[in-house]
């Protein structure tokens, strides 16, 4: 595998994998470590390694197994508020696709103009009502509606060009 291919894999998958590992481990510090370990392994072995047939499955599976290894090694028991154990879902292709789509949308949102992005995040991700946003930002409800429509349009455009 050459450096360009490695770079491409890294740029495409790194952030989505960190977020996926974070879900699996419930802890940020370890999430990055796990993904770094997987990529370091590929980098070190890149000369003997051809191009991966199915990089998506390879990367997500590796991260999943590394994360589970960590959980087992640490004998971690992550307990939720109600005292029940958090169950980690097994690797599935749909989960990987879901994370890659989330990553694309996330990157598109990051590229929105500032006001548009702030309103979109407050409304669609943080779940605030239009009225609450209007009060907090001192703007008209109509402006909020317009900005959200604009945000969806821009995100859609971004997604289509990827």
């Amino acid at each position: 595998m050459d450096k360009e291919t490695f770079r491409y894999l890294f740029d495409t998958y790194y952030n989505a994998l960190c977020n996926y590992a974070c879900l699996t481990l419930g802890m940020n510090d370890d999430a990055e470590d796990v993904v770094m370990e997987v990529f370091t392994h590929i980098w070190d072995k890149r000369e003997g390694l051809g191009d991966l047939d199915n990089p998506k499955a390879y990367l997500f599976k590796s991260v999943y197994h590394k994360a589970m290894e960590k959980i087992r090694a640490k004998k971690l028991v992550i307990v939720a508020l109600e005292g029940e154990k958090i169950v980690v879902p097994d690797y599935k292709e749909e989960i990987a696709d879901d994370y890659l789509l989330k990553e694309k949308i996330f990157q598109s949102i990051r590229q929105l103009p500032t006001q548009c992005r702030v309103i979109f995040v407050k409304s669609k991700i943080e779940g605030m009502s239009h009225k609450e946003i209007a009060q907090e930002m001192q703007i008209a409800v109509k402006t909020i509606e317009n900005q959200i429509t604009k945000a969806f349009k821009l995100i859609r455009k971004q997604l289509n060009t990827i």
Partner: peptide, 23 residues
């Protein structure tokens, strides 16, 4: 179709730094 409401907690990790470190 856009799972935007599922993005809560999704975050940006320092990709460029990680790439430097490994390579």
């Amino acid at each position: 179709q856009l799972p935007v409401d599922q993005l809560k907690g999704y975050q940006q990790y320092p990709v460029a730094e990680a790439f430097e470190k490994i390579t």
